[in-house]
Nucleic acid binder design. Structure first.
Ligand SMILES: [Mn+2]
Ligand SMILES: [Mn+2]
Ligand SMILES: [Zn+2]
Ligand SMILES: [Zn+2]
Lengths: 138, 138
DNA sequence: CCTCTAATTGCAAATGGTTCGCAATAGCGT
DNA sequence: ACGCTATTGCGAACCATTTGCAATTAGAGG
């Protein structure tokens, strides 16, 4: 069920039911935090522990299968790693728009003599829908 | 010593020695975290408490005098608010290049139908100096 | 399949950053 | 100077995350 098994075997790691469950959940949702992942996973496996969630998250990060997002909040969010992309967060409805700004950002760095390798970017503002719908906080 | 007193009076807040000490420290250093601020401040006032540091940091944020940075680490960093700017962090020497990308970023948002209000941006990569100095991690 | 062993789990307790309750202290308008 | 109220220092509480440890289990080898 998981090509992840290749990644795991390559490092003497084991493919446990907990790990496939968690990776599955992360892959079918976006921007989950550890606790949301935990709650979703427990519906399948009520004995799962929160430590296992965190340990698995760290493992999947190391394997490059999952990415940790530092959105403005005090805790982290996670998503399955796909193409690099960035986040535009609507201050009114909370929607998170994903878009790929990599090349544009690299160019901005270049203008300052900087060779960008990766970018952590979060724009806060208003989405088109909310902008239409009347005067929100300016 | 502080035009901050105007901001404070305007909200029934008091100008205490702790507050001026802390603001002074934040103003003469860049990117300090709470604990670094605490240690520096204690050299002047050894009885200062860490709670006061955090409370003051929150107050100064509200007053718009200090900005909280969410750099990759697990704790926050703070700096005196000046013009909005962004950070390019060198993976080799750790240097933080500051530059103003606001208008460029706003334009990137606009292309996705988004009205940007503020941006949290951190590019990771290599500064000009380190790039010259030989092959570091690609 | 069965065995063996190292990797993994669940649980509880420890962390590290940040916040809170409270009684004592001290700004500041009068 | 006085008094009211904001602020402080202290300890304990909090929340996200990590860790120690004994019990469980994946999966390599027979
Ligand atoms: Mn969240
Ligand atoms: Mn730091
Ligand atoms: Zn919106
Ligand atoms: Zn450098």
């Amino acid at each position: 069920m998981l090509e992840a098994s290749a990644f795991l075997r390559a490092e003497k790691k084991r493919l446990t039911p907990q790990r496939s469950l968690l990776l599955g959940i992360i892959r079918q949702h976006g921007h989950l935090d550890a606790d949301e992942i935990y709650r979703l996973a427990r519906r399948e496996n009520p004995r799962l522990s929160l430590s296992t969630v965190y340990r698995t998250l760290n493992l999947l990060k190391e394997l490059g299968l999952v990415e940790e997002l530092h959105l403005g909040e005090e805790h982290h969010h996670y998503e399955a790693k796909a193409e690099e992309h960035h986040h535009l967060v609507c201050l009114s409805c909370g929607k998170v728009i994903e878009c790929r700004l990599t090349e544009d950002l690299r160019e901005l760095g270049r203008r300052h003599g900087f060779t960008m390798v990766s970018a952590q970017v979060e724009l806060a503002g208003y989405c088109a829908d909310c902008r239409k719908q009347g005067e929100n906080d300016p």
